[in-house]
Design a protein around this nucleic acid. Structure first.
Lengths: 204, 204, 204, 204
DNA sequence: GATGAATGAGGATTCATTCAT
DNA sequence: TATGAATGAATCCTCATTCAT
């Protein structure tokens, strides 16, 4: 009995996730307005009414399409392990972030939409703003440390962090298809440059 | 007689531009779908039907909102004067571009939308892609020259150019209110870093 | 001076007729609703506003498109010369009517429209109804005379007249292009049959 | 369960037919353009949106208003039983057709509209043209046989068939109120005359 | 909970008519 | 009188949301 309930619960959860992922994909491709609930239902292979069983409204679905992945992946950006030197830490971070960006184009495009149409999604935009600040708070100490150690050029570390995030989000996710593409390696170098690496601190 | 016709013609053109600028502003704030023609008409202070006598459709209005400023300002990005050294040229460019970005937030946000929802605006996206390539073609020689002169670190110049453009477009146009804000100066430094300036070539 | 005024008057009239004929042609092809005033103006090669200088409204233009040719050609149907025998008279009539139908397809099609959508054009329909009655009144004596002389089978002459008119109006004006087409000759024979010609009174 | 689904299905079908019949009636009275979807919805007692859940567009609704009755009643015109003699067969046919015309004025008026405005409904017109040809093919053998037996005057049987159909379609459906009206009997006689009945073959 | 039909508010677009020049 | 820009009412159609089954 408990087993059955559990299974049912799992299946419920899976269906919810299926809908959410489908929605994320469609929203990211076509935008909020051009994506209909009927599209989502059809693409996900569930009934039209089901979407409303799992999500209160279209807006709620869109919000979750952004907020859930954001929550799940926050730690990638906010909690990182420090290596021997700041430059090593930052380079490792960049690698992880680029990998993430390469693999989560849909998520990134939704972020781009929210930023580009902030007036339409004020609370989502605020959430992203909050994330930006948290990211700054997390990254600044490393940058400062690197600057003190002479690995990075001096400059407002908050500015560096924001620029870096803008750069990631602004990436034209076109070539992005294969995460192993050499372009991504090149982009990592570019990203690293934003930190102002001094000669001999890893910038090729 | 000719004078009257001329005057009428001028007024016609002014009205058209009024509508276009209003549309640009609203599209940039709320996005394509959330902006109604009635909104545009009301904001511009013209009648509902007038919008349609100047623009064939909502889509045409949106396209012109992007294409006309793009055409008018292309030269800022594609035709620039070279100074003594590549690093000076690039720094001058960055100043001009940042100024432009600071003053044309609406235009930039429309570009962001098109990029974020390329499936919805395929031809506009293509146009932007073309621009990207032209920009690369224009900028690469300077970058190469700088690399040869030792002012810039080595690296694929196309990648540098694309990164730089992405960085500009990706800028979060939030703080951007006054074009004279110190943030813009900081952003110029960040932008310059993408070119991989070597020590002594102007990166503070 | 008087000469000039006259000429101007003539030109005025000609322009009016040009608009009217163009309208008739377009109304007949596309129907009342699918024909726009702008279409008419463009086809006639006059300015948009001109149409309203000559006709109070779209509806007035449509009405005139029907009523003026109706008035002009009424006599063809209502005042005819009687020949030696009723059968000869009727056959001459039929020839004239068919010729008219072949040459005035546009006019006929407008009539068809009014009849098919009588609720939309009640007064025009009434006008056609009146014409139908006048036609009956004009034709019945001939038919009666023919019946009395044994040339035509007996039967309500009003019914014959109405049937004949319905037949003319109902003709599918498709093949009708060249008025000299053999089909028209065939149709004359068919039309004559409605009068119930007895053997030896001209029905081949 | 199956019973419920079946019932629902039936009700769905009934609602669809209700809308279709209402539309047919309004289209026939006022014409395509002057009939609004809102009119149809109101007359049928369904919501505005419902019309669109049963029919893709206004145009589709109009097409079905013609095509469905056409399909359903084709057999009346194309498959008939032959009696002793061609004249008897034709007279029986005429009785059936007149009865049909008297009872289906709305359908006939839609046909008249399509014919009168063929440029607007080219595919429907083509469909009617096809029907015309099928009707000719079906009727000609009878006519020929009658001509050979001396019951009908000679003449191109295709012409006779087309004339007869034009006559039916061209009938002014005004008097038509009660199908039992004596006018219809008179019209049958007129219709029969088109076949060129010789003396003694049933033409009164 | 699952389904999908029903609803109607909202928005793009058309076009007759008006009116200033 | 000629012109054609301005206006906004009217209409088709979409689609989020509700709700009965």
């Amino acid at each position: 009995m408990a087993r059955t309930a559990e299974k049912r619960e799992r299946s419920r959860h899976e269906k919810r996730n299926l809908i959410l992922q489908t929605a994320q994909s469609l929203f990211s491709e076509n935008g909020y307005a051009a994506t209909t609930i009927a599209d989502v239902a059809k693409s996900a292979g569930v009934s039209f009414g089901s979407v409303f069983s799992y999500f209160e409204s279209k807006e709620a679905l869109f919000k979750q399409s952004l907020l859930e992945p954001l929550e799940q992946n926050k730690s990638i950006f906010l909690r990182f392990t420090t290596l021997e030197t700041p430059s090593e830490t930052v380079q490792a971070l960049i690698r992880i972030h680029m990998e993430f960006v390469a693999r989560n184009a849909a998520f990134l495009r939704i972020i781009q939409q929210v930023i580009a149409q902030r007036a339409q999604f004020p609370d989502l935009f605020e959430e992203l703003d909050r994330f930006n600040h948290e990211f700054q708070d997390a990254l600044c100490p490393i940058i400062l440390q690197g600057q003190e150690m002479g690995e990075f050029s001096s400059g407002d570390p908050n500015l560096v962090a924001t620029s870096y995030l803008s750069f990631l989000i602004g990436l034209r996710l076109a070539y992005a298809d294969p995460p192993g593409h050499p372009l991504w390696t090149g982009m990592m170098v570019m990203a690293y440059r934003l930190f102002g690496p001094t000669a001999g601190s890893g910038n090729s």
